[in-house]
Computed example of a mutant assay.
Amino acid sequence: MPIHPISSVTTLVIPLFFALAVVLAPPVAGASPGAAAAPGGPFGWPLHPRPPVVHRFDKPAQDWLPGHRGVDLAGTPGQPVVAAGAGIVVFAGTVADKPVVSIDHPGGLRTTYEPVLAEVAVGSRVQRGTRIGTLVAGHEGCETCLHWGLRSEGNGRRREYLDPLRLLHVTPLRLKPVAPQ
């Protein structure tokens, strides 16, 4: 009996769809922090428990134009802030009257955290989940938020601001239709 092409495609596509649905499902209430973000993956949330995203990334069309070069995560003053991934602290100080911590990660990525009173020194090696400081009030537009940023740092390409939520694989997956052949 010949195999019908539609049934063989269905046999492959349906299990793949359900596998993606399980992997991309939102976290279950009470699940461990970062549970929706590639458990054991290289990056996790910088605040625990998993914080609400108050203001999303809004990349400007040109570097000099206004935009939101990171995400704002709801927090509370005094809340511990942890490294999103392993790396080396390259800055722990003040920028424009705001306390900031910056960490370089393998692959030419840099994460930034503000307003955070540093508990780490420049040159310190950190792992995912290492406490790097304490959240303080004072972020413009969201008094008790952590502004979490991500940049590519070169490696032969120009510096570029990126959405830090991409590190967590929490951005929605959009499937495009396959063009008929």
Rank of each mutant, 00 (worst) to 15 (best):
D63W: 14
S102K: 14
V101Q: 07
V82R: 10
A96I: 11
P80G: 08
G75Q: 10
P106M: 13
G85H: 08
P60N: 05
V90G: 01
W64E: 11
G93Y: 08
D104V: 04
Q62A: 10
W64S: 14
D58V: 09
D58G: 02
T94M: 07
A84M: 08
A96Q: 14
W64K: 09
F91R: 07
F57K: 01
P80I: 03
P99Y: 03
L73A: 11
D104W: 01
H105D: 05
A61K: 15
V81K: 04
G85C: 14
I88R: 11
L73T: 12
T94D: 10
D72C: 09
D104E: 15
F57W: 12
V81W: 09
D104I: 01
D97Y: 11
P60R: 06
Q79F: 02
A74Q: 15
H68Y: 10
D72S: 02
D58Q: 11
G67Q: 08
G75E: 03
Q79L: 00
L73I: 07
V100Y: 13
G78N: 00
V95A: 10
L65S: 12
V71W: 01
P99F: 03
F57S: 09
G93N: 08
V95T: 07
G75N: 05
P66K: 06
A92N: 03
L73H: 03
V71F: 01
P66R: 13
Q62G: 04
S102M: 14
K98Q: 11
A61F: 07
V81C: 09
V71H: 00
G107H: 01
I103V: 05
T76F: 10
A92K: 02
T76G: 10
A74P: 13
G85F: 13
K98F: 01
V100I: 15
P77S: 06
D72P: 06
G67P: 15
T94F: 05
K98S: 12
Q62M: 01
A61I: 14
S102E: 15
V101S: 07
D97F: 07
P60C: 03
F91C: 02
G85S: 12
P99M: 08
I88M: 06
Q79V: 05
A61V: 14
V81L: 11
V101N: 08
L73R: 07
D72N: 04
V82Y: 12
V82C: 06
L73Q: 09
R69T: 08
L73C: 09
P77K: 02
R69V: 09
D97P: 09
R69E: 05
D63F: 15
P80K: 04
S102I: 14
V71Q: 03
Q62L: 04
H68C: 05
Q62K: 03
A74V: 09
A61W: 13
W64D: 08
G67V: 10
A83I: 02
P77N: 04
G87N: 06
D104P: 01
P80H: 04
H105G: 13
G75D: 13
Q62T: 10
A92H: 02
G93L: 07
V95H: 02
V82S: 12
V101K: 05
K59Q: 15
A84T: 11
T94S: 15
A86D: 03
W64C: 11
S102N: 13
V90R: 01
Q79H: 00
V101Y: 11
A74S: 11
